[in-house]
Design a protein around this nucleic acid. Sequence first.
RNA 1: GGCCCCAUCGUCUAGAGGCCUAGGACGCCACCCUUUCAAGGUGGAGAUCAGGGGUUCGAAUCCCCUUGGGGCUACCA
Length: 508
Amino acid sequence: MSATITAMSSDVRVRMAPSPTGPLHIGTARTALFNYLFARHAGGTFILRLEDTDVARSTLPYEKDILDGLHWLGITWDEGPAVAGEEARGPHAPYRQMERLPLYAAAADRLRAADRAYACYCTLEELEQERHRQEAAHLPPRYNGRCSHLTPAERAAFEAEGRPAALRFRVGEGVVGFDDMIKGRVEIDVVNLGGDFVIVRGDGTPLYHFTVVVDDAAMEISHVIRGEDHLSNTPKHILLFRALGYPEPRFGHLPLILNADRTKMSKRKSQTAVGDYIAQGFIREALVNYLALLGWSTGTEEEILSLEELAGRFDIEHIQKGGAIFDRERLEWLNGQWIRRLGSDELVERLRPFLAAEADTGHIDRVPTDDEIAAVVPLVQERLPTLGAIGDLVDFLFIDQPALDPAILVPKRWDAETTLAGLATARGTIEANGELAFDHDGLEVALRGLAEARGWKAGDLFMAIRVAVTGRTATPPLFETLVALGYRRTLERLAQAHRVLSAVGAGT
RNA sequence: GGCCCCAUCGUCUAGAGGCCUAGGACGCCACCCUUUCAAGGUGGAGAUCAGGGGUUCGAAUCCCCUUGGGGCUACCA
């Protein structure tokens, strides 16, 4: 018990606050990861909060995708919303903003009562026109303050018109400064904030800049670690913390993940959905490892690190200040590294859905059994850049007869005639050798002997056999492949390849 | 346009005044290993540390300017 208390005794409280307006994004995942690592390293608390106040764009399927994706990555939270029958965890429930509306309403009332916020009756059209005017005059867009000092009579007139009122926060004057944990000292004059900003919509729903502050305060968030795209918004938040009488958390703004052209990573130019990477066969260990090292380093030359090891080494000091391009090649390399580190049973588990998908699309005839997958693991483990590559590596085992392209059936240094002889004699040799000697060593001795007797380079003979039985020029090692295929099917395919090749020869 | 942030090999990065004629990794190229493909091993090309001024005996590291890039500038988050 005391150990638990010690472990959780840190007053570090960080949160991840995704909006369910799209599938889990790579950038969101990394921000979640950094918060998670920061919390775990410090023995603090990691909180998940759903920011679903954009009702028009938020959906339950997106919410599920985000939660599932975070789970898949192994990022677990100590406090979070109720999901799928499970109750909310943590003392500050609910953790879904649309269920916290009364809290925002109360905070809004306080600001209104203190005249730190006021009703604004401007319509969206009016605001837009004003923006266009400013733009035309080459002025920075900002709210002109029309409703900031309405007389009771004016207010009554608008109300009588039935205009909905949004709530605007008075930004006032001065310079807001803060010491960013990553960027250092940042100071921004409030005149650059664009005027008084809306914190509650005309329809009564609260806006992000407002809810984030109310919730971070209520949930006693100690460190706000988020993407750099929020750096310029931070003064708004600080102003709100102060107006509400809340202590300010520490802020840390992470550099952005970039497209190849160095713009903020976007769906348009990059693959951004974590789900897509999962579907292609990237494994959690690799994605976590890769994401952690995108913008952060241990300061050493270590680079293959598990989630636990990352948590142990994590520090804010080594976070890079500049953005980082997402490099899929490096991710693939790491993925291969981690796939090789998987235990055999584990790899079978992870491979199964990908083989099932191959069967679904008809690339293979049936879903292999776990034993069959296990048998093939030693042949493929170090050849898989992604789990999704499994199909091309073993499809020949699970289809009746692979398609044979006569063009690749003949090895580079051979002609059709030699190949026909090679296939025929190989078949004869294997058959003469018998089923009992149909194992790796037996095959190697027999086939090398055949090549030597005929004056062929063993490699050429092997290539002819390889293509004949698999339909491919790149496969796992030949003898293991033949054994996996089995005695009978090996002989059949050699015969079939011979038929295909002689048919071509006859036809030309 | 305004405000803010950033700047080391193509990419991810090490580097917190002398250890740097700048290290590692991905990718690329060669060679070795080898029945193909991978993996692994060895080696190589690749950054005058964006440019220019300072400060200092000494700067990739500190300061300033310039340039370049990015982010933000909604009744989105």
